[in-house]
Design a protein around this nucleic acid. Structure first.
Lengths: 107, 107
DNA sequence: TTGACATAATACCAAAAGGTTTCATACAAA
DNA sequence: TTTGTATGAAACCTTTTGGTATTATGTCAA
């Protein structure tokens, strides 16, 4: 059985396309809210709400720097979701799943 | 950048804990709706709605057999989500990510 | 210290999500 | 053919979600 549910806040964070776009964006480096909002056809408060949900899921960390709030990707949270899905690897790629197991155990 | 958005219906399907439980359940084999609903503290129509969303995401396939409708896991759809997340592998395990790339290219 | 900027916080709204109840339909089996 | 089972479908309700607009707060810079 896949791991139990501490996954909920992460999958919730992943459920919205805007939030997934923000995640991709932050993969290139940390950014302030206004900077992020500028890339979407959406008001800043709306983006701020998405960031709050991402933070609840542990997907980002926020650091106040002067009057800016810098949002940084926290990729370990994504691993939670990836791990849940990895249980199903065996259905689409038995060979790779087995190899991964070997590699992970050897670390 | 991670793959563009055909991911939405899949991530939507994954967003609800009941639906993830159904996915886990169907990993053990196909089941009829009533059979699934019996395992949840929820009415059958509610479960049927979840199944409809899972089907929209391509996560399950439905086959009518007499008066039963058998729900079967369609794991390729989960791969869509796993692939999106795999882009971020590099953040938590560079070594494994590189190895995976090698293995996948060699197939 | 005044003004501009970056954000927080609040109130509000419409639509979607998650659930229920009720009723209709279709197949199976006696 | 009648009865029970498995499901579909519609109507309805409540809460959450995703968005807006507006107002307030704190910080930098002239």
């Amino acid at each position: 059985m896949p791991p139990a549910d501490q996954t909920q806040p992460v999958f919730r964070a992943l459920a919205d396309p805007t939030r997934r776009a923000i995640i991709s964006m932050l993969a290139d480096g940390p950014r302030a809210i206004g900077d992020i909002a500028a890339e979407f056809d959406m008001t800043r408060p709306a983006v701020a709400k998405h960031l709050a949900i991402l933070k609840e899921g542990g997907v980002i960390a926020v650091e106040t720097k002067g009057r800016e709030r810098i949002n940084r990707l926290e990729p370990e949270a994504l691993k939670t979701a990836a791990d849940w899905l990895s249980y199903f690897d065996r259905f689409w790629d038995d060979r790779l799943a087995k190899l991964k197991t070997v590699v992970e155990k050897s670390s």
